[in-house]
């Protein structure tokens, strides 16, 4: 995969830190990154900026994950807008978007890609 090779990968935590079917938050430099762990079919790990741009608090890792029309999303725990786990776009508010980070699991290690 060419997309993967562009990044420098950094270990940020262990698989055991993740909560299946839900999110946790890691600190990467000074950025808060929400990690969502969905074991099963398809990619298992997704990462978005933890900050909810609408509620304006660092809480996205604490939202409920699910899918809306086949799109994987997390619902902000504050005001319940949905953000795509794949591209960070907000489903309710056109144009609102949160940062998406490349992440992968390598054995028990969780890696994040830095540009």
């Amino acid at each position: 995969m060419t997309a993967v090779e562009k990044h420098d990968w950094e270990v940020i935590c262990q698989r055991s830190d993740l909560v299946a079917g839900s999110g946790v938050c890691v600190l990467v430099g000074s950025e808060q990154v929400a990690l969502f762990y969905l074991p099963g079919e398809g990619p298992e790990l997704y990462a978005l900026a933890n900050r909810d741009p609408i509620g304006k608090a660092n809480v996205l890792s604490r939202g409920i994950v699910g899918d809306i029309n086949g799109q994987l999303v997390v619902a902000s725990p504050l005001y319940k807008q949905h953000f795509s786990l794949v591209n960070g776009a907000c489903l309710e508010e056109e144009g609102v978007r949160v940062e998406v980070y490349p992440v992968q699991l390598e054995g028990d290690r969780v890696l994040i890609g830095r540009r």
Partner: peptide, 22 residues
């Protein structure tokens, strides 16, 4: 319980009420 944790609203997950600043 592990099989229920992902189902809860944040308030239930952390057994406390989330405020506007998280």
């Amino acid at each position: 319980d592990l099989k229920h944790v992902g189902l809860q609203d944040t308030n239930d997950t952390f057994m406390a009420n989330m405020q506007k600043d998280g």
